[in-house]
């Protein structure tokens, strides 16, 4: 049954996002073309400039838009009128949430790929890619981080950060929805509460990390400290960033069973 839920969740998000992807890639192409054109006809440079502006806006927007579409789909499909169908399907509620989560994740990856692709289409020149990687590698080495650790950690926190926000929104919407009026207002309130709780958890994490690695206090006061010295903090906050989306997922599953209140 999960596969079937995935099928329809993916279809639905694709319908909203694929046109946007097309637009971004098209604009990337137009940036490249107008760039070439303006080299031969400098008078057209303002067109290139405009394309560039639109392109940058879309590139910045792509992940926000993906996030927005994911949350909107969840809200409409599970908590609004469509919820009467979704919640009476012969599937576990946790499968419903899992399917939405997986779909959000998949499209965040796809959107990132599209974003990179569009940037390559617009700006790639021979060797520019390896230049970029060299630069990043140098940066990591300067910070005394193994490049592979640097890449993995960054990617991991980006993913868990995005999914964390997705699941926080899911949870806040579910909790806010149990009210009879002002559901959105309550969702925002619950969202802020969750955010507050997470801040507290972060502090606790730092505290626990200091207990385990007392050197940290010295390190944090030392302006010559390196990332290596703070490794324990990175590890513990990395663990927290993984636990947050997982925790929100399980809480969402629990509350959707007990607190569902369709209009």
């Amino acid at each position: 049954m999960l596969n079937k839920l995935l099928k329809y969740d993916v279809k639905s998000l694709a319908k909203s996002l694929v046109p946007f992807y097309g637009l971004v890639l098209l604009l990337g192409l137009l940036v490249r073309i107008s760039g070439i054109v303006q080299e031969h006809f400098p008078v057209t440079s303002f067109i290139h400039g405009m394309m560039l502006i639109f392109f940058i806006i879309l590139i910045v927007a792509i992940l926000f838009y993906t996030f927005f579409i994911s949350i909107r789909r969840f809200y409409r499909n599970v908590l609004k009128d469509e919820g009467y169908l979704t919640n009476t399907l012969p599937v576990k509620r946790s499968s419903i949430i899992l399917s939405q989560t997986i779909t959000s994740f998949v499209f965040s990856i796809i959107s990132t790929i599209i974003m990179v692709l569009a940037l390559l289409v617009a700006f790639y020149t021979k060797g520019s890619l390896s230049e970029i990687f060299e630069l990043i590698n140098k940066l990591f080495i300067a910070m005394e981080i193994e490049p592979w650790i640097g890449y993995s950690y960054t990617i991991m926190t980006m993913i868990t950060g995005y999914m964390g926000y997705v699941l926080i929104f899911y949870l806040a919407l579910i909790l806010g929805h149990q009210r009879y009026s002002n559901k959105i207002v309550y969702s925002i309130v619950y969202g802020l509460v969750i955010y507050g709780v997470l801040q507290v958890l972060s502090l606790i994490t730092v505290g626990l990390t200091i207990l385990i690695d007392p050197n940290l206090i010295e390190v944090m006061n030392n302006e010559y400290a390196t990332f290596k010295d703070m490794a324990s903090l990175f590890i513990s906050s990395g663990i927290l960033s993984i636990l947050i989306p997982i925790g929100c997922y399980f809480l969402s599953c629990k509350f959707i069973n007990t607190k569902l209140n369709l209009e």
Binding site: S12, K15, N77, D81, E82, G83, Y84, L85, T88, L89, P90, V91, K92, E263
Partner: peptide
Amino acid sequence: GVNSKKIISYLPERTYLNRD
């Protein structure tokens, strides 16, 4: 639960179909 939903066919007052 899942088993009861398999055998219940429900028509609510609302339009619950995905308009797209």
